[in-house]
Structures are given as C-alpha cells and as structure tokens.
Design a protein around this nucleic acid. Structure first.
Lengths: 110, 110
DNA sequence: AAAATAGTTAGCCATTGCGCTAAGTGATAG
DNA sequence: CTATCACTTAGCGCAATGGCTAACTATTTT
C-alpha cells in the first residue's frame, strides 16, 4: 500500500490545471469525443491530447477508441481517493486517532 | 471571481507532493516550527523550505516568525475550496443544475 | 479513388519544480 | 562577546510541464 501516495500525487496534479478540470466538468455531463472536448479550448490538438493522456494516466478518466473516434468518460470512483484523503485530514484536526488517521500517516510519511 | 481557478491550481498543486501532504498531516495535530517539521525528512533545509513556502503561497498554511523561530499552522478554511470543487463535480454527475454547477463551470472554462 | 476527418507521433522551446551546496543574517545561549 | 541555532538567500542542475508546428496514420465521406 505504498503506491497510495503516488496515486494521490498524480491525481492532485491532474487536478492542478484549469484545462483538465474543465474537461472533467464537461465529462460530468456524459462521455464525449476528443474533438468535442477540445473545441472550447484555444489550443493545438496535440497540446490538448497531452491533457487527456494526463487525465487517463491519473485514472480520472478512461477512454476507448472506435473507428477514428476516441471517446472519453469520467472514472468517478477515482475521485474518492481525494475525498478519503480530505476526510483523513479532517479526522486529524479533530484529534480522532482512528483507522483513517493511521492509514494516511503511515502511507504519507515517505 | 476569476482567481477562483488560479487558487485551485495552486492548492491542488500544493497537494500533489508527498512531502507537503505529510507536513499538512503533521500540522493537523497542531502548529510546529520549521525545524520540527523538517526533522522527519531526509532533505536539506533549503529544499524543505521551498515546500513550506509553496504551502504558504497556496494558503493551506500560515506562518509567523518570532525571534529566530518560524511557526507554521494549518489554514483549515482553505481546504473547503477543494471540497467545494468536489461537490460541484458530483453535482454535475448527478445532473443537478443548481448554483454550484453554474458557479464552477462559469469559472472553469477559461 | 480522392478528400476530408479524427487522432497520433515526433521533436522543439520556455518555464517551473524539486533537489543540492555554500554562504549569510539575526536571535539566543553560554 | 563569541558561539550556536534557526532559518534565509543565492545560485546551480536536472527532469517534468505545457505550449507549439510539421508531418503521419487510419477511418469515413463523397
């Protein structure tokens, strides 16, 4: 359970970019193709694709190609990593020394 | 309300590093000095200080120097930015077209 | 079959991130 | 008043990020 931290790294970093967050919001409404997703952004396609790859590597979206079209969809479950971390953090503030706290501190301190 | 997105950038990026998350967890237990915080990490002090500055710039911690000691403390309120974004995201999945959704989409799409 | 569409690959560039060492400052301890 | 302590500043090096253009592949459309 040491890659828990690595996953969080990647997820938080995926979320640290406005383009990627906007893509996630868009996908909240349902799946979409790369070009549909890219349209609102003033950015060359290859640049945009990097964001898609980043999101896919983080596990926040999954994609699948059919014919010449690649469709992207949210991987909602991945968001719970963030929620778990936040809850654990709150648990610490509140001085609760429960499972959650142990789990996180043991996995975070290097 | 255009810097809402910039704030999120900085906050998420602050969270995208295991050292910084560990510091936040540590501070969850109460304020601490720089050297106390740095002790567990196998890292030169100036390197560690960059993390502290990053956290302070993100607003997730605040610090204050007295004599030669700088004390750091959590700025818990800042964590709600993340929670708000997550809630908004969930609201989108659930097709709820409420205030939250509008707020986020209007501020995210560039 | 030719043209248009939807991605993809390769490579360049500037900036930022994250580590380091060396040397400096200002407060406190002896 | 000298030494130590707790940062702080300056600057270096390397890898990753986020943008670009140019050129390519594979699928539809016409």
């Amino acid at each position: 359970m040491e890659q828990y931290s690595d996953r969080l790294d990647t997820i938080f970093q995926a979320l640290a970019d406005p383009t990627r967050r906007a893509v996630l919001s868009r996908l909240g409404g349902g799946p979409a193709s790369i070009s549909d997703l890219a349209r609102p952004f003033d950015m060359a396609l290859p640049s945009f694709m990097k964001h898609i790859h980043f999101l896919e590597d983080s596990g926040l979206i999954r994609t699948h190609k059919q014919g010449r079209v690649r469709t992207c969809a949210l991987e909602k479950a991945q968001f719970s990593m963030v929620e778990t971390w936040l809850s654990a953090q709150r648990a610490l503030w509140e001085g609760r020394a429960d499972r959650l706290e142990k789990f996180v501190t043991e996995n975070e301190e290097e």
